[in-house]
Design a protein around this nucleic acid. Structure first.
Length: 859
RNA sequence: GGGCAGUUAGCUCAGCGGGAGAGCGCCCGCCUCACACGCGGGAGGUCACUGGUUCGAAUCCAGUACUGCCCA
């Protein structure tokens, strides 16, 4: 199994199989030790930078990471080979909520909690946790073969990074973009903190919808409102109706009396009310509904908070309800409304309600004093940057997604009621508030206990990692970055904010291309997730099939849309690895070696393969340029399997190709392959006599000459002939080396040796007796099996051939008979159609003649 | 409620204006001196539906039906 590694690090014996588990660690170490990954900001070479979307320190590699980082590694490796000074910025994110939860779970297991520990000790525990477990994803990225700048690892809670965060907060505050206020926030009762709009997800829920009658204060009737949250009626401060609703027109401006509470509240007209929905009358609870909060602002209505940050009913809800949970309160309110005789109806209602993406609990909208960033001023240049193409999205459609969000940008709730994170640089003393890096002079100042939304620090990633605000060499050499590759679900959370911050603080976009990769779903189309049990662990796949196979398979799957995970694609990658390994062995065995000078293709087969390589290199460049990674992987696969192995190496064995050229071509194939499947590329390279250095620093794949149409045509005809002969033999159940005699009536008759080697057929000088006639695109071939032909079967086959030709002829005639086609279609196409007509007419005539001869001769 | 994407071979997906492709699976035959994680040969699609544009539509446009996602 394992080919024991001798002193020079190369496997001793090149067995039939490549063993990834043995080879991969060797190459990971070799890349590192050779200095191939070193980054030099002082280099004269052009810089090429990608900033990794920093994985959470708590994270383990999932399929999305595996795909995304394979893509980035392909880009990085290609540019490194091209001679750029590449930097793939590496680091992890402190991930406030996720990390704090992990440590809290740990504490719970120990029978304690963060309150007992106290803030300082708790934070120490988080750091300890990070030191102990935080390196997992780093190790996993290494085993995937990712060539990040591991030597310069960043963490969003590093001292220098934290200083950058504080500085930006203070600066945005000084510029008036950050403010503190009482606004409606998404309160996560599970975590006891506000969360941003983007951390909220809508889920479908079935609630009870009740209709409640609010009597008009002047005794002139009642107004029936519908609600799924009866407990919030305790906080109602108005009823709103549509201004166009005739049913309520005469009530606008009057007041009604809130049942159970007795508060007199106005009836207002507002465009936001949908007269079709419910009764057309909307109870307005500004403190616990986003829509209602906005209506209240338009009508200058007060807000009454009846649910507190502890998730329970407040004193303002009334003595009877204070202290209850909202659910308990809802039941009691309905009961009391019933008793009061104002409950009009009750039914089930299914609708979408907000849940915390973080804790999974139902979000409680409530008014709270928080710090916000007003993003409008920052959004403006970020919109311009995308509109004028300084930042391009691939696939393009995400441009509109980005712009739509940016153009309707809302204030960003920045404060999180957590302990782990960047603490707000804000100080309080009584009613005094100070924003600054340090507490002001004087006694009694206390720092705000809250921390910043994790995404606030992530927004600075492309430049804070390079040492900003210091004017470092790294910053000068590597900002802006070139490509950001990331998942669709963080376009707003992260991408948009990086653009805003980059423009604000670096006066330049943080990257010029944003590539949004596919979401990899479970094989059954569900989301891949641990909780659903649908997750597939990339680490296991690496162990089973090798990192190259995983990388290849993921690239094959990647697309402009979401894709289902396919084990078969990984298997396909593994097959390619094995194929290459064995191709390498064959080339070496046949005496292929790399020399010092240029190698020119010698034979027709050499020239054909060189031409195909040239095409493949061009296709690969084009694919990568357009971020079409499945096309890249597919192209390499077919070059290796269908061209190099199936035909070229077979021709080499048949003595029709040159070993030196085979080696030179393999070198370029490995250079093309290296960024995609780096391990097997190195391993095969290391086996090639004369190979210097490693693929990781090899020059980019170089064509061995341009396209060669002549050689391509000749080999295409050879392939067609060989395939036709194999088919012929296979259909008749002839043995593999069938020994049929063949005579070809047409140009480009392949060498007798080639036909013997590839098709097991014997070329003869004249049309053999008793032969079958088989049509080829460039002529006809007469094939005579040793045992003679089956006349009946041949007659049937010829008849089928004639029928086929007839249908082709009538198709071509129909096309050419269409005047409009002849007039309007491109001349080239019309010409093609004419040539086709001639060809099939000739073929038909030949087949008819053969048929006649066969019938006549058999008498 | 608004928007975006998808519907192509049994499965997973390419193709996106000139005669339907890949991988896997399936059938037949091969231990051919690189590779049985292999080699050779084959079968298998009215390209969701309806209309339109065009000499020509899987490919462009409009609509319908499902499916998924995003925003409200």
């Amino acid at each position: 199994m394992t080919q024991g590694a001798p002193a020079d690090g190369r496997p001793a014996d090149a067995g039939a199989r490549f063993v990834p588990a043995e080879a991969e660690p060797r190459w990971i170490a070799a890349w590192q030790d050779s200095g191939a990954l070193d980054v030099d900001p002082a280099s004269d070479a052009p810089g090429f930078t990608i900033a990794i979307p920093p994985p959470n320190v708590t994270g383990a590699l999932h399929m999305g990471h595996a795909l995304n980082n394979t893509i980035q590694d392909v880009l990085i490796r290609r540019r490194r080979m091209a001679g750029d000074e590449v930097k793939w910025i590496f680091g992890t994110d402190h991930a406030g909520i996720a990390t704090q939860k992990k440590v809290e779970e740990q504490l719970a297991a120990e029978g304690t909690d963060r309150w007992q520990l106290g803030r300082e000790r708790f934070l120490e525990r988080v750091w300890e946790w990070k030191e102990t477990y935080g390196g997992r994803i780093t190790r996993q990225l290494r085993s995937l073969g990712c060539t990040l700048d591991y030597a310069d690892e960043r963490f969003t809670m590093d001292e220098a990074y934290a200083a950058a965060v504080q500085r930006v907060f203070c600066d945005l505050h000084a510029k008036g973009h950050i403010f503190r206020g009482d606004y409606l926030v998404n309160w996560d009762p599970g975590l006891g903190t506000a969360i941003s709009d983007l951390e909220v997800e809508m889920r479908e829920v079935t609630d009870a919808m009740v209709e409640i009658a609010y009597p008009l204060s002047d005794g002139g009737g009642e107004l029936v409102v519908a609600t799924v949250r009866p407990e919030t009626m305790l906080g109602d401060t108005a009823v709103a109706v549509s201004p166009d609703d005739d049913r309520y027109r005469d009530m606008i401006g009057r007041t009604c009396t809130l049942p159970l509470v007795g508060r007199e509240i106005p009836i207002v007209a507002d465009e936001a009310v949908d007269p079709e929905f419910g009764t057309g009358a909307l109870k307005v609870t500004p403190a616990h509904s986003g829509d209602d909060f906005e209506i209240a602002q338009r009508h200058d209505l007060p807000a009454v908070s009846v649910i507190g940050e502890d998730g329970r009913m407040t004193a303002e809800a009334g003595e009877a309800y204070a202290g209850l949970t909202p659910e308990e309160c809802a039941r009691k309110v309905v009961e009391d409304l019933g008793a009061a005789g104002v409950l009009r109806s009750e039914r089930e209602y299914t609708h979408e309600v907000p849940f915390s993406h973080r804790s999974g609990e139902r979000v409680q909208p409530l008014i709270s004093l928080q710090w916000f960033a007003d993003m409008e001023a920052l959004a403006e240049p970020a919109i311009a940057a995308v509109r004028d193409g300084r930042v391009r999205f691939t696939p393009e459609r995400f441009t509109d997604v980005y712009l739509a969000w940016m153009e309707n940008i809302r204030p960003w709730c920045l404060s999180r009621h957590l302990w782990w994170g960047h603490r707000l640089p804000v100080w309080y003393r009584g009613d005094e508030v100070h924003v600054g890096l340090d507490a002001p002079e004087g006694e009694g100042w206390e720092q705000d206990p809250d921390v910043l939304d994790t995404w606030f620090s992530s927004a600075l990633w492309p430049f804070a990692t390079l040492g900003w605000p210091e004017r470092t060499d790294q910053l000068a050499a590597f900002y802006p970055t070139q490509v950001l590759s990331t998942a669709r679900d963080i376009i707003f959370l992260w991408v948009a904010r990086m653009v805003m911050m980059g423009l604000e603080y670096m006066d330049d976009v943080p990257f010029s291309d944003v590539y949004i990769h596919s979401v990899v779903q479970a094989p059954d189309g569900r989301r891949m997730s641990k909780s659903l049990g649908t997750g597939i662990d990339p680490e296991e796949l690496i162990a089973q099939h090798g990192a190259d196979a995983l990388r290849f398979g993921l690239l094959m799957m990647s697309s402009t849309q979401d894709v289902r995970f396919s084990h078969d694609r990984i298997a396909q990658g593994r097959q390619l690895v094995t194929k290459l390994w064995n191709a390498g062995r064959l080339v070496v065995e046949r005496g292929g070696a790399l020399g010092d000078g240029e190698v020119a293709p010698q034979t027709e087969a050499d020239r054909w393969m060189a031409s195909r390589l040239t095409a493949a290199i061009n296709d690969a460049d084009e694919a990568v340029g357009g971020f079409r990674f499945s096309q890249l992987a597919d192209g390499i696969y077919h070059l290796v399997f269908d061209e190099y192995c199936d035909w070229y190496l077979e021709l080499l064995k048949a003595g029709q190709a040159t070993p030196e050229v085979a080696a030179a071509l393999l070198e370029q194939i490995l250079a093309l392959l290296g960024p995609v499947m780096p391990f097997v590329a190195e391993e095969v390279w290391a086996q090639l006599p004369g190979a210097q250095g490693m693929v990781i620093r090899h020059a980019p794949p170089r064509p061995l000459g341009g396209r060669d149409p002549e050689a391509e045509q000749a080999v295409e005809r050879l392939k067609e002939t060989v395939t036709a002969l194999r088919s012929y033999a296979s259909e008749r159940g002839l043995p593999r080396r069938s020994g049929v005699s063949v005579w070809i009536d047409g140009p480009d008759t392949p060498e007798a040796d080639t036909l013997r080697a590839l098709a097991g057929a014997e070329a003869v000088d004249a049309p053999p007796e008793g032969a079958s006639v088989v049509g080829l695109s460039f002529g006809r071939m007469h094939v005579a099996p040793a045992g003679g032909i089956d006349r009946e079967a041949e007659i049937a086959r010829l008849q089928a051939g004639i029928d086929q030709a007839d249908s082709e002829i009538s198709r071509a005639e129909r096309q050419l008979g269409n005047e409009r086609f002849v007039e309007r279609a491109p001349a080239e196409l019309v010409e093609q159609e004419r040539a086709k007509l001639t060809r099939y007419t000739d073929e038909r005539a030949a087949l008819v003649a053969e048929l006649a001869a066969l019938r006549g001769g058999g008498q």
